[in-house]
């Protein structure tokens, strides 16, 4: 059952903005790799680096943060804060010898189903290529 070549991606989505977009992708039957797993958080600037590292540690090949961007209903500082988290985590990943490119972030608005699918496809492709090497 376990398909080791098929990279697994963990997506952090946000309840009110990016998760509805991911739902919409399903609703519109826009397909993306089935090894994409989504975990919900209230806001993308609430993600701890610890969780991301944990995911890599346990075997995820890539982590994607579907950020609120400027749509965030909590604060307009969300984008900056999320970027900071990503930057910090990149540092920590380098320390652990994980390719920082395996952590990606992009703003996904509440109707950006198509954008999400595109991101997933290209990220998945990137990860399978790097896995092959």
């Amino acid at each position: 059952m376990e398909n080791t070549d098929n990279p697994k991606i963990l997506v952090f989505s946000t309840e009110k903005i990016s998760d509805p977009a991911i739902d919409m992708a399903g609703l519109l039957k826009k397909h993306y790799p089935a090894t994409v797993y989504t975990v919900n958080v209230p806001c993308s600037s609430a993600i701890k680096s610890k969780w991301i590292l944990h995911a890599f540690d346990k075997g995820f090949d890539g982590v994607f943060i579907a950020a609120d961007g400027t749509d965030c209903s909590f604060s307009d500082t969300c984008s900056d804060k999320t970027s900071k988290i990503v930057a910090n985590t990149h540092e920590l990943m380098k320390e652990k010898n994980i390719d920082p490119a395996k952590l990606k972030m992009a703003a996904i608005c509440s109707v950006c189903a198509e954008a999400f699918v595109k991101h997933m496809k290209s990220f998945h492709k990137f990860l399978s290529e790097s896995k092959g090497n």
Partner: peptide, 19 residues
């Protein structure tokens, strides 16, 4: 397992089940 399962991966039922 609907919006992010069966519907998103209707192209690949075995993997949809695994997910």
């Amino acid at each position: 397992i609907r919006e992010q399962g069966s519907w998103a991966h209707s192209d690949n039922p075995p993997l949809a089940t695994e997910k």
